[in-house]
Design a protein around this nucleic acid. Structure first.
Length: 882
RNA sequence: GGGCGGUUAGCUCAGUUGGUAGAGCACCUGCCUUACACGCAGGGAGUCGCUGGUUCGAGUCCAGCACCGCCCACCA
């Protein structure tokens, strides 16, 4: 076995990606007696690339998966990809555009074939990235939202919901993207605040009165006006209600109607009603039985209804209409006006309210039980404040427009009769119309991508068949996802799961933050601050990237990803590597001895084992509550701050020639055992380096991924030992501090004198002189019972233990004086605050006696120490003078 | 308009039940000490957003304010 000075992630990762990729390590074991633990992956876009946000989610998933697996659970982490309707179609259309073609040139079938080719070509990229991340998914159960099984699930759900009256078709005003040429759901129309204008336009009364001035942000839609509305109680307009006014630039007149939805305080108090181009007006139109006039077509261009403006783009038309109004003397004013513009989530085109035939899910009846499930605790959000967001949305939910005028997706299982226009909704194509016998044609629309995603937790497990996987793994245990898709995905999975499985789709939902850049800015391609996963994995190692994600994943917080953090955890991986290197070099000896068990565990061993139990407990508690950050931090601190910084240093003498064989064996065994446990604890976070090191351990115990998860052995927990070790460590640090502050040559062996507070401390120091001496680079360490010498020494104090290093002639008098003064200053301030507290009768009477007593003791001690410092200072002056 | 978060060291953030403010990074100083310079040792650094209240005692509990962020929304 050879192990280099540097951890080289690329070689190690390549080996393990290969090993884990071909082995069946991560295949679920449905026949095992182990209790199942299931997660479904939030499916990435099949033609997309893994971005840094995926790295976060999948790292968190994998931590849980590996941890649960090591705990002995039968883990199923099910992988798969999403067909991602609009997104994918756009990508392929863009490719076509480069060839100078459109999807219309190809026709639907050829276009669909083209997208499938894309999927075959690029679908593997995402899986390769997932492998390189170390994701321990069950590849034998991989799914795709458009594969046969899932498509059948989609059709089954659609048909059932239709028969239950929860899916309906309506000619309705929807969000329409004129560029993508499809309807969008409310969620896919993203509102952005922009500055616009509010125009005041006069609608004259043909009978002669001045008419009514309306306020609008969209003058170009006036060609679609079919009424002007005012508030029924608005005194300004009483005379006009029921009369007709002329729509500017046209010959049409429309009635002035009264409706209480009009806000008399806004604008002029009168509003034009354009039922075909404004959601509000659409409803008003339905209420008031107004006709619809379509002034804008599905491409956002003016129709013939706009007369001479016909064919113009909507924004151009707006300019020209305003101009024409001004010329006609009908423009009464214009003002700046902040408005929320809805844009297409995919292409940012301004969304147009558009009346068309669409399919909808009646959501309210589905939402009710979904709210219940979270209220009752059947589903738990982590952190739980996300439940509020969920409730807020669910309680105000609107029907969901699920039809898209796209070609890539699940075609709606509805057939239209070409003769009688009857609609049949069935899972497979009927041969003829069941009403008139005419020929039928399938509805051309496809379903919103999120429709199939909503079924993911059960469709992937075999539903609608009663598969054994479904029986064993549904409900899944945990869903990990971002808050940005709580409405898109989480809520809908809950509704569909409850409806079709009669049970929740998952018991817990962990909501992670968004990955941002080091300055906390949102990452975006346009800002150029994105982080490429493959790049950082190559630079820092996958384990470092993963560990960074884990340690930054504080619940409720976004993840500011700074390169320095990844550098830091690359160093940690290297530290672990080198600590292991030390252990392995010491352990790979020919020496064998049997007497290990018979000798008492030395103090350092008792300490590190005690600390180990504590960190195991901490890791467990943290993981149970999804505090990935705490678990990672605890492990980092244990490995680096305790195992490496103290235990390895303390144990070195036991490994030396001068030690007994039994001491050496004991030390080696402990080093290996504690390291092995640390490797197992770290494995979920840093799978590669831990797997490699575990493989190199003596007697090569197999794959760490299937090694048992450590459990706390309470017999080793010893708070007294912990406390004792802390005192010893602080004394060492105190001596080092004296050395550094007094500019004592690093290599020089010094004499150390200690004045302790009590017999207990004296005993502790006496017991551990051998632990103090080498780390303090001291030739001798002596406990003095009387006063410490005040002249010719460098001194310090820690936890009531006063330290003096006699160094005749070597003491830097100036440095020592300023140091003593600083100490005295600090202590004096502390004495004052404590004295004030003790003089406060309120404190003495009301605070618990123990607290008061402790305060009094500390005060006395500090005062005594201040005296000694003053003494030392005066002596220093005397000594310095000589 | 409604809702949800946040404000603690130069940066990013921890701070469990109120009891002398922490970590990582950055910074300064000294060390190639025989696992590791991706390292070792030491150090400096904070009016815990503001104002009031409860309390012997508030970063922590309460109220108000300020600023910042996010989400939802059919006020033209």
């Amino acid at each position: 076995m050879s192990i280099g000075k540097e951890y080289k992630p690329d070689e190690v990762e390549a080996y393990w990606v290969e090993t884990w990729g071909r082995a069946e390590t991560f295949q679920a074991q449905p026949d095992s007696a182990a209790s199942p633990f299931c997660m479904v992956i939030p499916p990435p876009n099949v033609t997309g690339e893994l971005h840094i946000g995926h790295v976060l989610v999948y790292t968190l998933h994998d931590i849980v998966a590996r941890w649960r697996r090591m705990q002995g659970r039968d883990v199923l982490w099910l992988p798969g990809t999403d067909h991602a309707g609009i997104a994918t179609q756009m990508v392929v259309e863009r490719e076509l555009a480069r060839e100078g073609r459109t999807r219309a040139d190809l026709g639907r079938e050829a276009f669909e074939r083209r997208v499938w080719e894309w999927k075959e070509t690029y679908g593997d990229r995402i899986n390769g990235s997932l492998r390189r991340l170390g994701a321990s998914v069950d590849w034998t159960r991989e799914r795709f939202t458009l594969d046969q099984g899932l498509s059948r699930a989609v059709r089954t759900v659609f048909v059932q919901l239709y028969r239950d009256g929860l899916i309906y078709r309506d000619r309705y005003i929807v969000n329409w993207c004129p560029r993508c040429h499809t309807a969008l759901s409310d969620l896919e129309a993203v509102h952005e605040s922009e500055s616009g204008k509010l125009w005041r336009i006069r609608y004259v009364d043909p009978t002669g009165s001045p008419g009514v001035v309306v306020a609008t942000t969209r003058p170009e839609t006036l060609f679609g006006d079919t009424a002007v509305a005012v508030h029924p109680d608005d005194p300004r307009f009483q005379a006009f209600i029921g009369k007709h006014v002329r729509v500017p630039l046209t010959d049409r007149t429309v009635p002035v109607v009264a409706d209480s939805f009009v806000d008399p305080t806004f604008g002029t108090g009168a509003v034009k009603i354009t039922p075909a181009h404004d959601p509000n007006d659409f409803h008003a139109g339905r209420r008031l039985n107004l006709p619809q006039i379509v002034a804008l077509d599905s491409h956002g261009k003016m129709t013939e209804a706009a007369g001479s403006f016909c064919g113009q783009d909507r924004f151009e038309a707006r300019r020209q209409v305003v101009e024409a109004l001004a010329e006609a003397g009908l423009l009464e004013g214009v003002q700046e006006h902040a408005l929320a513009v809805a844009r297409c989530q995919r292409c940012s085109t301004v969304v147009e309210p558009h009346v068309s035939d669409q399919w909808f899910v009646r959501v309210a009846p589905l939402a009710e039980p979904a709210i219940q499930a979270v209220e009752s605790g059947s589903i738990r959000f982590v952190p739980d404040n996300w439940a509020k967001t969920y409730f807020e949305w669910m309680r105000n939910i609107h029907d969901w427009c699920i039809s898209r005028q796209l070609w890539w997706g699940h075609q709606i299982p509805a057939w239209h009769c070409q003769q009688c226009a009857a609609i049949q909704v069935t899972e497979s194509a009927p041969s003829t119309c069941d009403r008139c016998g005419g020929s039928v044609v399938q509805d051309p629309d496809v379903l919103d991508t999120w429709f199939s995603s909503a079924l993911w937790p059960f469709s992937t497990l075999g539903w609608p068949d009663k598969s054994s996987d479904l029986a064993r793994y549904y409900p899944t245990d945990l869903l990990i996802t971002g808050h940005d898709i709580i409405f898109f995905w989480v809520a809908r999975m809950i509704m569909m799961g409850l409806r079709f499985m009669g049970d929740v789709p998952f018991r817990e939902v962990y909501i992670h933050g968004l990955v941002r850049d080091a300055q906390g800015q949102k990452m975006s391609k346009s800002k150029g601050n994105t982080v490429n996963p493959a790049e950082v994995q190559a630079r820092y190692g996958t384990d470092a990237v993963r560990f960074t994600m884990a340690v930054l994943a504080a619940p409720g917080n976004d993840i500011p990803l700074a390169p320095e953090r990844m550098e830091g955890y690359r160093a940690f991986a290297n530290k672990l590597w080198n600590a292991s290197r030390f252990v392995l070099l010491k352990a790979s000896t020919e020496e064998t001895a049997g007497a290990v068990d018979s000798c008492e565990p030395p103090f350092a061993e008792r300490w590190i084992r005690s600390r180990l139990q504590v960190v195991i407990g901490e890791a467990n508690r943290s993981l149970e509550s999804y505090r990935f950050d705490r678990a990672a931090e605890a492990l980092y601190h244990f490995v680096w701050g305790e195992y490496c910084d103290w235990y390895i240093e303390w144990v070195k003498p036991d490994l030396a020639e001068a030690a007994t064989p039994a001491q050496r064996m004991r030390a080696r065994a402990t080093l290996v055992e504690v390291l092995g446990t640390a490797l197992r604890l770290l494995h979920p976070f840093m799978p590669f380096v831990t797997a490699e090191l575990w493989r190199l351990l003596p007697d090569s115990p197999g794959d760490v991924a299937t090694a048992p998860w450590p459990t706390v052995d309470p017999r080793w927990i010893d708070p007294a030992v912990d406390a004792e070790a802390i005192l010893v460590q602080e004394i060492i640090a105190g001596i080092r501090n004296v050395r550094a502050q007094s500019n004592i040559e690093p290599g020089l062996k010094i004499e150390v004198l200690l004045r302790v507070r009590d017999a207990e401390q004296a005993a502790i120091v006496a017991r551990h002189v051998d632990l103090i001496r080498p780390l303090a680079r001291a030739g001798s360490v002596r406990v003095i019972t009387g006063e410490l010498p005040t002249a010719g020494v460098a001194r310090g104090v820690v936890r009531g233990v006063e330290i003096a290093v006699p160094l005749a002639g070597l003491v830097d008098v100036e440095a020592e004086r300023s140091r003593l003064r600083r100490d005295l200053d600090k202590i004096s301030k502390e004495i004052i605050t404590r004295a004030e507290r003790l003089e406060d009768p309120g404190f003495c009477m009301r605070a618990p006696p123990a607290v008061v007593e402790k305060e009094r003791l500390t005060h006395r001690e500090l005062a005594a120490r201040a005296d000694r410092l003053r003494e030392a200072l005066s002596q220093l002056d005397v000594g310095g003078a000589t």
